[in-house]
């Protein structure tokens, strides 16, 4: 056991650096995913004609294909069109685009779960549809979406490990590197796994606290109710 711990201490600095990269990737991807996902959800819910169709096509294409394929198209494929993107931005873009489709569906689900009477009451007060969406629908939808959205946070942190396939030095890639020095694959993977479990538990706790903090009566839900 003591040997194991000494081993962990020796590899920890390298893994820590990888973890930081993983967290940065997931933060970048989540922000990008939110920025694209919310407009997509609005376009799919309230848009008409071509706007709605584009949103549906975007969301369903992304959700219908594996993230690795998306990553490979962006990192290996786009240079064919003269678009060269570095590893880390490529990973963030691929993860972010992937996340945007799922986030869009979470937002859409939340928007659609809001009783139609809310929109009606807002319009009856004289609000335009835009005002109603902004002041009445979205503030509620963003609260409702928090539990499933926080699951997306956890997914993203885990899925950053895919970036290892294009040699981004995140946690998994560091682990593989250490394996090639030490020839102790199981030990290294065990500690990598432990780090993921601990980090994700901490993130889950933080998310729960945030939810508690901003919860208002009538909007209590829990992350565990969504899977």
């Amino acid at each position: 056991m003591r040997e194991q711990i000494a081993f962990f201490v020796s590899i920890f600095p390298a893994l820590w650096e990888g973890l930081i990269v993983s967290l940065k990737l997931s933060a970048g991807a989540l922000i990008l995913g939110f920025t694209i996902g919310l407009p997509m959800a609005l376009a799919r819910t309230y848009g008409k004609g071509i706007v709605k169709k584009i949103a549906i096509a975007y969301i369903e294409t992304i959700r219908g294909t594996p993230m690795v394929v998306q990553l490979f198209i962006i990192y290996f494929g786009l240079p064919d069109l003269g678009i060269l993107i570095d590893r880390i931005p490529a990973a963030i873009i691929a993860l972010g685009i992937n996340s945007s489709a799922y986030q869009a569906e979470y937002f859409r689900g939340a928007i659609q779960s809001i009783d139609s009477g809310q929109m009606m009451a807002a319009e009856a007060l004289g609000m335009t549809k835009k005002q109603a969406v902004r002041h009445i629908i979205l503030p509620q939808a963003l609260r409702i979406v928090l539990p499933p959205w926080s699951n997306e946070v956890i997914y993203m942190v885990k899925y950053t490990s895919v970036a290892f396939l294009i040699a981004v030095p995140e946690l998994m890639a560091r682990g593989k590197m250490i394996i090639s020095w030490t020839f102790k694959p199981l030990e290294v993977l065990f500690w990598v796994g432990v780090i993921y479990v601990i980090v994700l538990s901490i993130i889950a706790k933080i998310v729960d606290l945030v939810e508690l903090k901003i919860s208002i009566p009538g909007f209590q839900m829990s992350r565990e109710d969504h899977y």
């Binding site: 682990g175 593989k176 479990v197």
Partner: peptide, 16 residues
């Protein structure tokens, strides 16, 4: 535990 582990980690783990 399983839901906290990336699939790649599980894949390599079982592989090794």
């Amino acid at each position: 535990i399983i839901r906290s582990l990336p699939l790649i980690v599980i894949l390599f783990g079982l592989y090794y």
